[in-house]
Simulated scan of single mutants.
Amino acid sequence: MRGLAVICALITGPVWAQSPADDAQAAAVRLGEARVALDAADGRSDRVAALTQTVQAYEDGLAALRDGLRRAAIRQRTLETDLASRSEEVARLLGVLQTMERSPAPILLLHPNGPTGTARSGMMLADVTPALQDRVVALRAQLEELAVLQGLQGDALTILADGLQGAQDARAALSKAIADRTDLPSRFAEDPVQTALLLASSETLEAFASGLVETQTGSGPDAATVKGAIPLPVEGQVLRGFNEADAAGIARPGFVIATRPRALVTTPVPATVRYAGPLLDYGNVMILEPAKDVLWVLAGLEQVFGEVGQIVPEGTPVGIMGGQSPSAQGILTESGQGSAGQRSETLYLEVRDRQSAVNPAEWFAVE
């Protein structure tokens, strides 16, 4: 009876869900497609747009792969722990199955209590055998999934290294394509002397932005019609909201957005470039004008793209975040520890309407 109880416990044990390795493998396919897109971008007339999509495809593919590897590592540990904890029961199950395979069917049905006992044991065996078979199938599936997960770890290093190199190549190609671009309309020509004087006389971001508003020239795009439904200019997470104090008690009238290293920053709507370059202690800053008297300040970039006065269309790259992308081995290590990658860089986003800073949530759709 104890042996039968063990078998029944195995039969009613947990049935595991589909392996997350499939998601990781799908992400690897996406990285392969991004490499094909990168090779094809050289011949495209809209090379900047094609390379922008390629960089974003690499970023999405790498993020998906990291998440897939993290969940695969967790799943692998779960399977190994589960199988190890049930090793005695699994061994007994295999022993019962081996005994059944070696014993002739008539002997299995014999019972010392005569025909009644034989009939009863036959009915019990008929009930248990299909369930045993189901459990064997489930056990085989677990072992096969474990083998796939272990194989994935072996292939991941090469896939990650290729993906990281491809992303680096795509960013470099994008930077060159933007520098060579000559097809963007220009709303006005920058006055370098006026800009230098404004920089020299401004001690705060507010003063500089106010000076830009006072030097309005002509008319440009108007994003007011989509106000409140505009996506953030970078994939990330809002760490601090409008006027929300940080750990030091300092509150800023904007969003602090956590991003991954080297993340691409784009303009979500057409806008005029009002300033691009270093500003005070904010690092490299991009200031866009999406509507009359409205400025978006994007601060904390490592690289900025665009010339003052240009009207950049929706989806145009305006900068790249700083930081260093982790190595392939580093990603594998963090995945094995259950981490999906850190958003170690921060983008500061401030929205100014005329002379005042307003809550960016009035313009941007924030989850």
Results as ranks from 00 to 15, higher is better:
L83R: 01
T54F: 02
G330M: 01
T118S: 15
V55T: 07
V90L: 10
A340D: 11
L332R: 10
F208M: 09
R30M: 13
G315S: 01
K292S: 08
V48C: 01
S201P: 00
R66W: 12
S201M: 07
L149P: 01
D246H: 06
T52H: 08
V213L: 12
R274H: 10
P326L: 05
G336F: 02
A41Q: 03
S201E: 11
V304S: 12
M100V: 12
T217A: 13
V238K: 00
W296Q: 00
R102P: 04
A131S: 12
A138P: 05
R352Y: 04
K176F: 07
A119K: 10
L232D: 06
F364E: 01
A105D: 10
A119C: 08
F242Y: 11
P278L: 04
L157G: 01
E214G: 07
L4S: 12
D46L: 09
E88R: 13
L93Y: 12
R240C: 02
Q150N: 14
G306N: 04
N359P: 04
E334P: 05
L10Y: 06
A328C: 04
A28R: 09
E362S: 10
T81V: 10
Q329E: 14
E334F: 07
E214S: 08
A41V: 03
L31I: 09
R274Q: 14
V36C: 08
T333I: 13
T267N: 06
S339P: 02
G13Y: 12
V29W: 13
Y58I: 06
G323I: 00
Q165A: 15
F364S: 05
P104Y: 02
A248E: 13
T272F: 02
A271D: 06
G3D: 13
L332M: 14
Q53A: 14
A147G: 06
A291D: 00
A131C: 08
